[in-house]
């Protein structure tokens, strides 16, 4: 792979749900180290786009290359290998509530481990150490042995980030990671994500609901409207008018 070739590239990707068009001929290239924020109204197709990049959903038509893998033609095994290299942070955290924070973080390593794991003790020592380090990094080493469903929302999302980091990913996808959080936890989580992205030189694609945090977080802002890329600007070039139209009712 040449150094300047994009890590993620979508070519005319279309996704139909029945007769509804969730993604409509989306064209998008993301380069290494970029932090892209997706903006768009509810139903614009943000989650669907992220799921496609992670190989969790298959496009109806079009081409999608992620980290050199052609997703649309990949077999399940190749997709698994690809997903291993992509961290995914969800709006609803999606932790296993009855397991401890540490075990949830460890589960990020499942993709590179063979066979099932039952309990913390069944993970290799190196994974446990890595998971503990990542929990420490998100500021939760004190809560490592607490059950995930007893943590606050902000803490749960930080555990989910630790889980993604244990994957040691090259791309980090985040789908409205702070929508379920109160403003102060939201700020903590976004700052954490930004710091990590910079330190690790991660490529980040993150959907957000609000414009202000997007502008301080992103290097590039992509506006989606009805499944189409409506605007695509570097953060320095973003103008209010375009963003208003991303959310605007009329064309």
């Amino acid at each position: 792979m040449a150094a300047e070739s994009p890590v993620v590239s979508l070519r005319a990707v279309t996704k139909m749900f029945g007769s509804a068009r969730a993604l409509d001929e989306v064209e998008l290239e993301v380069r290494r180290g970029e932090v892209v924020v997706l903006l768009g109204r509810s139903g614009a197709g943000k989650s669907t786009l992220l799921r496609h990049v992670a190989g969790l959903q298959q496009a109806t038509s079009g081409g999608l290359t992620v980290l050199g893998t052609e997703v649309s033609t990949a077999r399940e095994r190749e997709l698994r290998r690809l997903r291993r290299r992509i961290g995914f942070v969800f709006q609803g955290f999606q932790l296993v509530g009855r397991l401890s924070a540490l075990e949830n973080a460890c589960s990020g390593a499942l993709g590179r481990l063979a066979g099932p794991r039952l309990g913390l003790a069944t993970y290799p020592r190196a994974v446990r150490r890595l998971a503990a380090e990542q929990l420490d990094r998100v500021g939760l080493s004190a809560q490592a042995y607490q059950r995930a469903d007893t943590l606050s929302g902000g803490e749960q999302q930080r555990v989910a980030i630790a889980r993604a980091l244990v994957q040691q990913p090259q791309i980090l996808l985040a789908d409205e990671p702070v929508a379920a959080l109160d403003p102060s936890s939201a700020t903590t989580v976004l700052e954490l994500l930004r710091g990590i992205a910079r330190e690790e030189q991660l490529t980040v694609i993150c959907s957000l609901h609000q414009v202000a945090p997007a502008l301080s977080f992103a290097t590039r802002v992509v506006g989606l409207r009805s499944g189409r890329v409506f605007s695509d600007q570097q953060v320095s070039e973003v103008d209010e008018e375009t963003l208003a139209r991303v959310y605007g009712a009329a064309e």
Binding site: R80, R84, F88, F90, S107, L110, Q167
Partner: peptide, 25 residues
């Protein structure tokens, strides 16, 4: 289904996902 999707996104296999995300529940 949330945790199951999350583990699929991690690259875990079906049995791995079952043991970690479903069995405890």
């Amino acid at each position: 289904r949330g945790p199951q999707e999350a583990l699929r996104a991690v690259g875990a296999g079906r049995i791995q996902t079952f043991c970690t995300a479903v069995l405890p529940q």
